[in-house]
Write a protein that binds this DNA or RNA. Structure first.
Lengths: 219, 219, 219, 219
DNA sequence: TATGAATGAGCATTCATTCAT
DNA sequence: TATGAATGAATGCTCATTCAT
């Protein structure tokens, strides 16, 4: 391949390893996000990355490995963004508020990352599941800790204690669901989303731990 | 193939079309639920159904079509179950309550259906999306209608109006998420789930429409 | 593919399974014989067989399985030919004679089979080895039995007993080697080969068991 | 790459060409012997040799060339060992005896060389064949010369003359086969092997050239 | 109606080989 | 001299899909 061709292809050659890895991961996230794990082909990824397939295998391993690497990187980014958004010096409600805002901001700015994490990773059985389930569990635990801390202060009865984990899961699920809904309603701001969700769950949770309960009027 | 052979194989042949279709759909749901859309093979489905592959293609079209048919049937069942659970003569909170209970009951009794609907269908890009998105939209609309009816009675300010759809989406998402979480915590009853979620969202929603709002203490 | 094309390709379609299997095995032996196991491609085999690759995998399994099936079939044929050639009612020398003749005749008439058995199969480490080593062991055992029978009659001293197995191996090796040599000297008849080898080994063996030994004149 | 780096790697660089070549060939023989030609990878060879792949290509050419070089070196060593073992001042039988002993000794001491020569080289079709066939021809010629010399002395009838080459091939084959058999019976000494084979073929050959022939009692 | 037989097309993966430094 | 970085080109294998009966 002569100089002319090289330039026509617009590819830079002989880059250091970590740069290439980043290139590859970026491409992989794009492609996995667009077509899903199974429909994504290594050929397309290599093409989008501007790198030949053997490099992918040399650096990131099999398709499965590559997907796992994507998940790990994006999940880490997401959690870091959320963690960075939280102000630990504030009260729990503000922590949740900032956490939610950070979450929606991240999703808004990294649609592809989100799609890979939420849509693709969740649905695959087998090896990734572990990875993703673990990440999701970390998120739920994070929220649960927040809820417990809050509830404990106010005094938490037994049933409520038992419920917090479920509520945390529900909360995470709401956020995920809202994020998805957002994809089809781009005129909404991330702030509005966070605000709505905050009102929904925080007030509800507050009532719950205070003993104000909704009870079916008749079974 | 003569009668003798037919009997030797022990299968009943020449069944009416709708029976065959049900056989096939049942098998397809089982297999899709177990392995996911892509990992499911038409071979396995035909084997589980006890029907040859050409029959599947003749009756239900391509793999994609087949999957769509599964989604449609299961979603319909789910919505019917929920609708049937609702007592229109009761107040909105009781309607939601019974709806949630019916939802969780259905999920508990039809794990496979749920897995196909939630895990598989959500993650596939492309043609199914339409189908699934439509179904999901119907569910959200159902909840939204409920919320709007309630809110309207009490007088709904503008921002709240705008939020109800999002809240409906969030609510549906919470329920889905809780249902998933349930798969790993089978000792919980469907009643408990419904109760927790009801408390979380109904009280929150009640506060919201009544004007009691949570507002970040400082931006 | 219309009728014309079908006829142009000269392929008969929808044959019963065992016919197809034979076709495939025939082609595989040809191709393995020509290029060796590793250089043989499933594509070429399928092309030579006039059958698509999926049929090969459906009927005969993986490349390794296919190769194993070739080995087994050809080895069986060879052993059957040799066994059929032997006249059990005759004396041991005549048995060996007829056995050798049958062997060389078979090799002469089935060069490709021989090449696959001898050249290809012997050299592969791993799974086939077992198969082939077993076949070779059977051949050696056959010869050994013959030698032992003969020797026992005449009274066999200890060292000679111990040597028969080695001699059997050597004899089989000579025959194999001669067969190979023959490939490059096609003007020789199988009868001549058998005769030479018979004289070489039978007379030598006779001397050996009779106690006429060659002993190095000086170490 | 500067001096510091060079020393950090702990490898001695800039060695004279022939030393590098020997390193490479040693590694190649080891690897080819262990995995066979096709399963051996240039990567592994370069790793075992402690030399980068481009060096291998620069010094010894393609994989095929490299294999050829291995064959040539090892075959030469073997032939030299055998030749060195022969005492030309002794009679033909003693020459063969010493030749065989030298052969088996070499095999015993250089299993890897032997494996490459016998197992790998023989089975590959194509380019190597030439190389290997040539080497084998030299070995056969060596033996043939010996036989002819012997036979001529005693007077050799026409048929026997014609047969010597075949017998030489058979002899070489027996030795090879015995050597293989030996790999699975390590308690045998090389002397025993040589002795058995000597008795088998020398006596047989002696009979043959003396006119004592084995003739089938009835065709 | 019903199916065994058959295939086109694609995909993950590997490896000998060669630049650019 | 010496090599890390990079790739073209195959190859084994699978699967949705469709004939011919």
């Amino acid at each position: 391949m002569d100089v002319e061709q090289r330039q026509r292809h617009g590819r830079v050659r002989r880059l250091p390893r970590d740069v290439r890895e980043r290139q590859i991961l970026d491409a992989a996230v794009r492609v996995f996000s667009a077509h899903g794990y199974h429909n994504a082909s290594m050929d397309e990824i290599s093409e989008v990355a501007g790198v030949s397939k053997p490099m992918i295998y040399a650096y990131l391993g099999s398709k499965e490995d590559l997907f796992g690497a994507c998940i790990r990187r994006e999940a880490t980014r997401l959690l870091e963004a959320v963690t960075a958004g939280i102000r630990v010096e504030l009260g729990p409600d503000m922590q949740l508020w900032h956490g939610l805002r950070a979450f929606f901001r991240f999703v808004g700015e990294h649609r592809e990352s989100w799609r890979v994490l939420h849509r693709q990773a969740t649905s695959q059985g087998g090896p990734f599941s572990d990875e993703v389930v673990a990440m999701r569990a970390r998120a739920i635990a994070l929220v649960d800790a927040l809820l417990v801390r809050t509830a404990t202060k106010r005094g938490l009865d037994e049933q409520a204690t038992r419920a917090t984990e479920a509520l945390a899961a529900a909360l995470v699920g709401s956020a995920e669901s809202l994020a998805d809904w957002w994809l089809d309603h781009p005129d909404i701001t991330d702030k509005m989303l966070a605000s709505w969700l905050m009102n929904l769950v925080w007030m509800g949770f507050g009532d719950l731990v205070e003993g104000t309960q909704w009870i079916p009027s008749a079974e």
